[in-house]
């Protein structure tokens, strides 16, 4: 059914100060599969996904218990290089957040900060990433225009291209369509399905249909606990847990 574990989450709890927002979560994220994280807002989905590329390191007074392994290496062990982890595990955010720079500069940014100087290589990678993100045809004549002139959906695909440019192996999406119209949402979903063959994908969404459409595995978080995790079809058709069933049938959330 899947080809091996990419990320192993083992007994993870997380605190903001004294507030415990994740408790004792264990699950696996499989290679070249799309794993959806669903749950009502405030249940800890963003917190959870941001642990996978150590984005929560930026928050002072936070505390992690348990371990997260990427290819059997504990990413929170002191000797692991945060930069290397973030290159391997890219992230696309809820609100499109292109830099106030040109389209080209946005995509090239990740290469530049990783000390790649070869101009020809950068250009090649920028074009390739824009193609993969299904944005190339729309922007090829205006690569040097400000990225802020693009529509919301185009900006989000630009953020995906920017993420692909550093050649990650895992991509985290935190509600990538939350601020987009249905047409743009559809494009992003198609894109996610295409990217699956080359990348391992984790997507947070509060849209259950979206989880059903794009994911292979689904994890249902509720009040910081992992209530149920398994194959998406199973979760959506024969949920084991009563809470999951209630959430999926819209009884709360």
């Amino acid at each position: 059914m899947h080809n091996g574990t990419r990320i192993k989450i083992s007994n993870v709890s997380f605190y903001y100060g004294n507030l415990k927002v994740l408790s004792n979560i264990s699950m696996d994220i499989y290679k070249n599969q799309v794993t959806a994280i669903i749950g009502p807002s405030g249940c800890g989905k963003s917190t959870f996904i941001r642990l996978l590329n150590r984005m929560n390191d930026l928050i002072t007074k936070s505390k992690l218990e348990g371990s997260i392994y990427l290819d059997n290496k504990d990413i929170y062990k002191a000797k692991e290089d945060v930069v290397a982890i973030r290159r391997l595990v890219g992230m696309v955010f809820q609100k499109p957040n292109p830099f106030p720079k040109s389209i080209y500069e946005n995509v090239a940014y990740g290469l530049e900060v990783n000390n790649i100087k070869d101009k020809a290589f950068i250009e090649h990678r920028v074009i390739e990433s824009l193609r993969k993100a299904a944005l190339w045809n729309e922007v090829k004549d205006r690569l040097h225009d400000s990225a802020l002139k693009l529509s919301g959906g185009q900006q989000q695909r630009l953020c995906i291209a920017r993420c692909l440019a550093v050649d990650p192996e895992v991509i985290l999406f935190d509600e990538p369509c939350a601020s987009l119209d249905p047409v743009s949402t559809k494009k992003i979903e198609e894109l996610i399905l295409e990217l699956k063959s080359d990348y391992t994908i984790v997507i947070v969404t509060h849209n259950m249909q979206q989880a059903a459409r794009v994911s292979d595995f689904t994890a249902f978080l509720y009040l910081g606990e992992l209530v149920e995790f398994g194959h998406t079809e199973k979760i959506f058709t024969v949920p084991k847990n009563k809470k999951t069933e209630e959430y999926l049938t819209g009884k709360f959330g």
Binding site: N53, L58, R87, F93
Partner: peptide
């Protein structure tokens, strides 16, 4: 969100600040 995007791409503090 600009800073977060930069950090998520593997930039360090100094690069995020200057670029």
């Amino acid at each position: 969100s600009f800073r977060e995007a930069s950090f998520a791409l593997g930039a360090n503090r100094w690069q995020t600040l200057t670029k």
